[in-house]
Design a protein around this nucleic acid. Structure first.
Lengths: 233, 233
DNA sequence: CGAATAGTGTCTCTTAGACACTATGTC
DNA sequence: GACATAGTGTCTAAGAGACACTATTCG
């Protein structure tokens, strides 16, 4: 049997869905959009849409990301996985390619979201409530959260949740919120500044929190963390 | 804009492709099939095929895996990623969901491969020759190899390359071949037997190599390795 | 016996984690 | 001055890597 027989392949719809995570108000949050029509009318869903005929998958994800957040820079985007259960959309056969995006707390409250209601929902709320999200989006969200948690261990991706300049304490808060643990500020500081290429000092200082001003850092050139940060003791 | 408008979604074909890795003759190998017709006639390609209308993605991958190898047990299978460049298939728009399988050296020389020529090709050969594989399969293969290498570090997946019972030396050879490094047999032994849940002694011994008989082990219950094996010193 | 492979013990160096201490700002 | 946060030093325990040594088979 030929693997590709153009005349008789079963047609699918292909979409991209986005798990856009950020940390705001000491909470990990995800961008969700209220569904305007059935199915799952009124339920929250991950932003997404069809892949266009001339688009690569990543292009489609990037386009949706820009449409939903209005931002294009400093947003980490990676493929998360594909979901294609035959009944995941009651109307037709849809395979969705999920992407994971990590963003700094966005100043504008979700610009350009073509008329739909959108909000940064705490991930804990959506995960705790099995029917909070439409389709299989709870499963996708769970996978995205787990991916993000894992990647903080061995990559410098925590910086993707921060602005262009940040203090060590702000970076530590990211870890503490995403992992839901407490980290020793002193050991964390030693480790972050000691890991080659993780962060680079800018020379400037910040005094956001009332104590001694903290050095400001920007993300370094490393793409892997050696040694990794550990969440399990 | 409604995200799903059934009447006017762009139709895609969706396939699964398999990166089936094994270790045979001290070489990491991948199962490839010779393409019978155009495009890329005569070229090697990863095994794969269409997702059927009523099938989940993983089901489709499992079905293809059984069709190609004849085996169904003791084969690790995980989703690798999706590939959907608009021109990746010259005939039509195809999105493929790649799966990675890790198998022990199979005794039968690729059973049930519906008439196509199939072989276990050394991965090094295929990676070195940019045009050895059809479509974007070289990229998929590269991603699969990198995934396998990474997973050996922090999971007990190396055992997936072994039979149901194996010696510590055999397990070490897996690491050495997949990572292309030399490992100290004594430190490796201490580490493997010390990591909780990695391997369990069966009580039996083996004398395959002419020296002192080695203890036989089977894979343990752990799904994560703590502490991980390290390939970078 | 020697050759070959299996497995253990010991030493050193690095690092995680705990935590005392100093530094520099605001009130 | 008190207080808060930033940052450094020091100790201990655990693990990685190097490598000497013992154990058990085959020929």
């Amino acid at each position: 049997m030929d693997r590709y027989r153009p005349a008789e392949y079963p047609p699918f719809a292909v979409t991209v869905d986005l798990v856009i995570l950020t940390v705001r108000d000491d909470t990990m949050r995800v961008l969700v959009i209220e569904r305007a029509g059935p199915p799952f009318q009124g339920r929250w869903a991950l932003p997404g849409g069809f892949v266009r005929p001339d688009e690569d998958l990543r292009q489609a994800a990037t386009r949706e990301l820009v449409e939903e957040t209005g931002l294009t820079t400093d947003i980490h985007l990676e493929q998360l996985g594909s979901y294609g259960a035959p009944d995941r959309d009651p109307r037709m056969r849809v395979v969705t390619v999920a992407y994971l995006a990590l963003a700094a707390d966005l100043p504008s409250p979700v610009a350009g979201t073509d008329a739909s209601a959108a909000r940064w929902a705490p991930t804990a709320d959506l995960v705790a409530e099995p029917d909070a999200l439409a389709f299989d989006h709870r499963e996708i969200l769970n996978d995205g959260i787990e991916r993000a948690r894992a990647k903080l261990e061995y990559t410098p991706l925590a910086t993707a949740f921060c602005g262009p300049e940040f203090t060590v304490a702000e970076l530590r808060r990211i870890y503490e919120i995403v992992w839901d643990v407490r980290l020793d500020p002193r050991n964390f500081h030693r480790k972050v500044t000691g890991a080659p290429g993780f962060v680079e000092p800018t020379g400037r200082t910040s005094t956001r929190d009332g104590g001694r001003p903290a050095q400001l850092y920007r993300r370094g050139p490393a793409s892997l963390l050696h040694p990794p940060m550990l969440r399990m003791p």
